[in-house]
Nucleic acid binder design. Structure first.
Lengths: 333, 333
DNA sequence: CTGTTAGCGCATTCAG
DNA sequence: CTGAATGCGCTAACAG
């Protein structure tokens, strides 16, 4: 017999399964004598409650689904850590899924998570489409969008003000005397990327620098792609003196390409990243960047979600939490 | 009514729940006519199968528990990505837990995972104690240890040859002319750390360099601690010309401290890391390191585990997979 | 080809 | 204070 059940204990203790259940769950209406007896026997038998059965019965799985685009990216890894920690503190486990920035994978992940009856969902949506999200909403499964948000549909969300962040980064470079600033963007269907671009444009406008289409490139989230792209751009002799990258992760690839061309940072090319990942400060040339409270994005998102799940929040409207980003000036610009 | 059940479909289709179950699971013995009808109704109603019920019935949760020490560490993040990918391919979800290198957390995580009836476990054990692992073995729950292994108890494992890796790193430095090599170690109860130390000693011995106790320091897995430790060591005027670090992650902290003292890498101090994390090659001074097939550690470990779960492997003895590490020579040494 | 019965392990009625 | 009955949603065994 692999797993001990309430019945097994009940038999040994010569009581009903109901009583065992009560004793094990610290419910009232059990004499301390029988309770002690039951607890002792449960321990001897090595009883472990079956949460599948419990969940089926209670309609609560104490599990939340976490859908991220890439855990090996330190930005998401930090968020994941915050999520795990907050979830654990409140007694929840997390099922983690990677989407690789692909909508079909997101769709599939959500499907399985619903089948596994997670109590709620935390997601950095791919945003190429969002019907899968709508389906979740229809089912009234609590969902919190992290680090990204939708314009067209309403969901709870925990984000940072990316327009402001893009503005701060660009303004910083402008104040350092740069006028031709290259923006290596993330994919534009991702809200954080498009909003940082908006902030970039806004800063240019404020300082009366004309916006140039050709100074926006990339549309990727991958470090390797940022590297090859930068190499190509450097060959093109594109005219710029500074680069603002969508993320520190991309900045790493960009810096590598620049170094290979023997250009000096920040003298030949100034660089401002985004996210303030742990390594940003450990680099040979510490990276000037926009700080994102990654860990807190994770913890706050999780708490918002669990409040929703447990009905503490009876908000009719979607909850929104928006952090204010800050520029961290270091050596790269 | 929140969730549609087999019964709901059965009523609408005017058949029994069993027939619906058969139709939905592509079992034989259903006329294609009723099957079509059932499928159509299921779709209309937006049916989503309840995996909790299915799991309770089948005693298979199609979920594996993953216990890592720190997902925000890029080494583990890469492993996690490999695990998620392989698990997904074979139809499993992963519940992720962080232990923060604390035994109590590991114990707690395993407890919950057993309660949630995961089909198997993937773990980078803390190794301060291992009674919790023994308990899992007693219950005959498949378990694969990743990147670390036990000497005293038998478990399936997927690791890299850390003695060899430590040897290669040290030998490389010796061949570069270094004789006073500092080893910034991980916690010694962790097999990878103690084995790399063993490799370090073995290399010294081979080249007839006396081992000096005071040249082994650290015993930490945290970048911040490696940084402060290195600062202290530099003040001590300890006599060394090269550093071998337990991980690239630690090396980042070490390099930061060295840079602050205006020492040149590799001229003043040569550095060899371990793991070959993605950033190692993107650094200003690309890091010489020992390559670990992190992603594959994750995928192979997962496949080994699932083979075990599904009874494909009928091995009586624990399975062991050992990768051969390779030294990647770059600029830091 | 289809339906009935039964039970996975648990906790909530409702009676005593 | 305790127990019997019931059902969460699903499927395997058995009967027709």
């Amino acid at each position: 017999m692999s797993h001990v059940t309430l019945r097994d204990i009940a038999k040994k203790a010569d009581v009903s399964a109901t009583t065992v259940s009560r004793a094990l769950n610290n419910k009232p209406d059990v004499s301390s004598k029988t309770k002690d007896k039951i607890l002792r026997i449960a321990k001897n038998l090595g009883y472990t409650s079956n949460l599948l059965a419990k969940s089926l019965r209670s309609r609560k799985s104490k599990t939340i689904g976490v859908v991220l685009t890439d855990i090996s990216n330190p930005f998401f890894a930090a968020i994941a850590k915050g999520i795990e920690s907050a979830a654990h503190k409140r007694g929840y486990s997390i099922i983690l899924c990677n989407t690789d920035e692909k909508y079909e994978k997101e769709e599939e992940a959500l499907q399985v998570l619903v089948e596994k009856r997670v109590d709620g969902l935390l997601i950095t949506p791919v945003q190429k489409e969002y019907q899968d999200i709508l389906r979740i909403k229809e089912r009234r499964i609590p969902l919190v969008s992290i680090a990204r948000h939708f314009d067209t549909i309403e969901t709870d969300s925990v984000v940072s003000d990316d327009v402001l962040g893009g503005f701060l980064a660009t303004e910083y470079l402008i104040k350092k005397g740069h006028k031709r600033i290259l923006y290596i963007s993330g994919p534009l269907h991702v809200s954080s990327a498009s909003e940082r671009l908006k902030g970039y444009k806004r800063a240019l406008k404020k300082y009366k620098i004309p916006f140039k289409e050709k100074l926006v490139r990339g549309y990727t989230a991958k470090m390797g792609k940022a590297y090859t792209l930068t190499r190509r751009i450097l060959k093109e002799k594109l005219d710029f003196t500074a680069i603002f990258t969508f993320s520190d992760f991309l900045a790493l690839g960009v810096m590598k390409a620049i170094r290979e061309e023997k250009l000096k940072i920040p003298d030949d090319v100034a660089i401002v990243g985004y996210d303030d990942i742990e390594f940003a400060s450990a680099l040979e040339i510490p990276l000037t960047t926009v700080h994102m409270p990654k860990y807190r994005l994770g913890t706050e998102g999780t708490n918002m979600l669990i409040d929703e799940i447990e009905g503490r929040s009876t908000h009719r409207k979607p909850q929104k939490l928006v952090f204010k980003p800050e520029l961290i000036a270091r050596k790269s610009a």
